[in-house]
Amino acid sequence: MIGNDLVDLQQAGKDSNWNRKGFMEKVFTGSEQFLINSASQPAQMVWLLWSMKEAAYKIHTRDTKLRSFAPTAIQCNNLVLHENTASGEILYEAELYYTQTEINSNYIHTIAAQNLEQLQQIKVFIDHYDPSNTDYRNKNPDCVSHHGRYLALVFI
């Protein structure tokens, strides 16, 4: 099983104030907060870690059929950040997920899988999102994420 999550940075900036008192503690572990506070671009780090958590959470809920809203229990580890990409791992309820992220000035998109081989096989399709058009469902993507201006489909 695979998962993905896209954050439209413009939309996120409009909808969310992550600087709000208490927000960080509700969402990020101590070591994640350290990564954010020491990042040259803190907002980018916030949404990078957020999309890693969401992408792995999607696999986990489809696996277990259990829903829960516990962002600090979904832990980001071994993050390696380059200029336009990042890789990392997520640990959630003793399950390990591998993530790969694309970063640009418009959006952050993370894909997740339960092993590295599967992660490398994922095909990504990103387009502008049109709420009135649901044709993308006919493509039978393995996971879908849309946010703000963008739609991201992943296939295995």
Binding site: S16, F23, V27, A70, A73
Partner: peptide, 24 residues
């Protein structure tokens, strides 16, 4: 992300603290 805002707003509005287990 806005679900986090709801939890924070609820804490302020009702003067309570919502622990992570309750939030989940």
């Amino acid at each position: 992300a806005n679900l986090v805002d709801i939890v924070l707003d609820v804490e302020e509005e009702f003067g309570i603290e919502i622990d992570n287990d309750s939030m989940s």
